[in-house]
């Protein structure tokens, strides 16, 4: 399709680089922005500029932040002795939304997967070991995904942390709350059985 304007054409090109945006959707978005008010359109442009100019990676935990160290790493109300290791910044959001954790995070930014060219040097493993070496940490919770790369990463990290006097734990894997035993596949069931716990009695 030939555009009458070169700027529209280049906007469509840029938009279609976004994940999940095809040529058609990119055109729709471009025309929406063309018709939008100047304030709305510039608001988007400035927001994009701000995340590129101001958002950095926290040197402690590896999460996205504008201040280094980030708000979570510097929050005096959070425990400094427990550290929860996750693959992605999105995972921090999910755990924070659960409200069930008040410690520190360590964002790996990936999981060991040579098929996607991700090895130990790509996952901030060294930074984790450095944090643990400083001695404040007493527990490391490995909350990588329950899939093969996530599991392999958990084994790799627990191996690395063996020499330190920290307890290394792995989040439980198994049947999701609201899930059905009947519809769980055998791998999920096997893990759920493996991760069974004594029933607490009064």
């Amino acid at each position: 399709m030939q555009f009458s304007s070169r700027s529209v054409e280049s906007l469509v090109d840029e938009l279609s680089k976004l994940p999940g945006v095809g040529k058609k959707s990119a055109q729709r978005l471009a025309f929406f922005l063309l018709k939008a008010s100047r304030d709305d359109a510039m608001g988007l442009a400035n927001a994009i500029r701000a995340i590129k100019d101001d958002v950095i990676s926290c040197s402690e935990c590896g999460n996205f932040t504008e201040d280094d160290p980030c708000m979570i790493c510097t929050d005096p109300k959070r425990s400094r002795v427990v550290i929860c290791v996750v693959e992605q910044p999105m995972d921090v959001l999910a755990i924070e939304a659960s409200g069930g954790f008040r410690g520190q995070y360590h964002v790996l930014r990936g999981a060991l997967n040579p098929l996607d060219k991700i090895g130990p040097d790509q996952i901030r493993a060294r930074e984790l070991v450095e944090r643990v070496r400083r001695g404040e940490i007493s527990e490391v919770i490995l909350a990588t995904n329950p899939n093969p790369p996530g599991e392999a990463t958990a084994y790799f990290l627990s191996d690395l942390l063996q020499e330190f006097s920290v307890s290394v734990t792995r989040i439980a894997r198994g049947i999701p709350v609201g899930g059905d035993l009947e519809y769980s596949d055998q791998a999920t069931l096997a893990r759920a059985l493996e991760g069974r716990k004594p029933v607490e009695t009064q």
């Binding site: 790369p149 084994y155 790799f156 055998q186």
Partner: peptide, 13 residues
């Protein structure tokens, strides 16, 4: 699922 393949780094690689 071959879950055991991810439970040891040597098997995994």
């Amino acid at each position: 699922a071959h879950l055991g393949l991810a439970s040891n780094l040597d098997r995994y690689r």
